[in-house]
Amino acid sequence: METNIALYKYCVRIADTSLILAQRMCEWCGHGPVLEEDIAMSNMGLDLIGQARGFYSYAAKLEGKGRTEDDIAYFRNEREFLNRCLVEQPNTDFAYTMMRSFLHGCLSYLQFRTLVKSKDDTIAGLSEKALKEMTYHVRHASEWIIRLGDGTDVSHQKIKSALENLWQFTDELFEMDEVDQTLIKSGIACDLSLLRAEWDQMVNEVLAKAKLVRPTAGGYQSKGGFNGAHTEHLGHLLSEMQYLPRAYPDAIW
């Protein structure tokens, strides 16, 4: 596989995952359980949009067809989106939102921590920035998981349900293909399989503190989001997110 084609896809995968999660976080705007959390979720959404913009802009440059970050974000259909399925799952409730952020955030944190040393300077730079932000996001989500898990019967039940339902999207976070292999060889991408042990450790630590039992291995696991195979939820999310630029393609803001 040609390095530039692999690199384009690699950046779009990272950007799509950040953007879709950002859209979900921002859906909370005006609906947060308390004002501070409402602000926190929009704030994190903003960080994620910023990360997505950086990677989309770089992808657009690599592609060299004159497209912009907006073209890539707004004018593709769900099968062309390469995000991990975990992040497109609906907010459902606050517990789900925190669990989704945590499971994704731990991997994202570890991934950016590795990519800081990428041989591609742009990726290394964008990752250095994103790493600091993900550190905050994971801390925020982990504290809430512990508080909810070790809280009342109701809060425990909610966070337990979130964990058990979202667990099927965790193996997929580590999926790799020839895009990754090509770039790992040239020292640009990071080998996700090497991050699994530390991810497990982070997750186990927080689940134990939250008095939650980690779901057993061997259950159903979703696959293929990073190649465009999504759950039903992504299409609905896109129809809302892309409405304006699709209805008014010449709109500028």
């Binding site: 903003l46 960080d47 949009i49 910023g50 990360q51 950086g54 964008l126 920035k129 994103a130």
Partner: peptide, 8 residues
């Protein structure tokens, strides 16, 4: 250089 990636 931006403070945060998405700083408006």
């Amino acid at each position: 250089t931006p403070t945060y990636s998405g700083c408006p």
